[in-house]
Design a binder for these strands. Structure first.
Lengths: 140, 140
DNA sequence: TTGAAAATGAAATTCAGTTTCAATTAGTTT
DNA sequence: AAACTAATTGAAACTGAATTTCATTTTCAA
């Protein structure tokens, strides 16, 4: 049930596969929203009352370490975690009214970013492009 | 000594010009770094021991309200404030080793951003583009 | 089965950010 | 210039998310 890559990651680090981790990881992989620790905690609670907040928190951190999740913190929001889909980097449009998060990719922007970096003799390791505004449903 | 726009802003809102505000605003305008409340508080303390942290905090918020400063929060960092220079929007390159912040602007990226928004029927109100990596001094 | 190491949940802690409140100050009105 | 009113101040208290602690429980290799 639990993701193979994650189980492999645990083994490689000498960590243990526990019932709680199974539940949390399983839920995280299913829910394909950008969820907060809070969100996942409640979802996990519905499956098993004994799963604590700290465990959810720690499991999400492990998922990030394992490279399966990414931590995002949008302006004025709590930290959210998203599933990393096969090396495909993407950025976000965030609706400031309803909170909807839309992912986008744009190769031409990435190319221009390279140029900007070169101009400043800067070695890029990561970037974050967030566009805030109103989504199609909220703009009128 | 204190910025005219800020004084005007205070009057327009029926707020008062105080010694503390004079000192804090004056320092903020001089220091052209991206400074934290902490930074400014220490600078202000050197000028006048009686200036408290809350006053610095509140004065920075006022500067933002007045449109003279912008609040920025880079990944893993505390909130920083930067002076708004004449309507010129810019983005940032942030060195993950030494913390240096380099500003950049790129019209072509802004244009592409418009396209992305249009494609998703999204009305942009703001954006944030942060590129993390190693600056020229730290990259070797 | 057992023992060592890791994991757990509840509670405590941290830390930046923010608010409260009694005392002080600014600046208008008399 | 004195009085008055509302805004401001600094210290301390509070907030809320994130993180850690710790005694107990669980995993899993030997």
């Amino acid at each position: 049930m639990m993701n193979k890559s994650f189980r492999d990651y645990l083994r490689s680090k000498g960590l243990k596969s526990t019932h709680q981790r199974e539940v949390v990881v399983d839920l995280f992989l299913r829910l394909d929203t950008h969820c907060s620790v809070e969100d996942l905690y409640h979802a996990a609670q519905r499956k098993d009352k004994r799963i604590g907040y700290s465990t959810v928190y720690r499991t999400l951190k492990l998922l990030v370490e394992a490279g399966l999740a990414e931590e995002r913190r949008f302006s004025g929001e709590v930290t959210r975690f998203e599933l990393v889909h096969r090396g495909k980097h993407h950025d976000h449009l965030i609706c400031i009214k309803c909170g909807r998060i839309i992912e986008f990719t744009n190769d031409r922007i990435e190319k221009l970013q390279e140029k900007v970096a070169k101009k400043h003799n800067f070695k890029i390791s990561d970037h974050k492009y967030e566009i805030y505004g109103y989504c199609s449903r909220c703009k009128k």
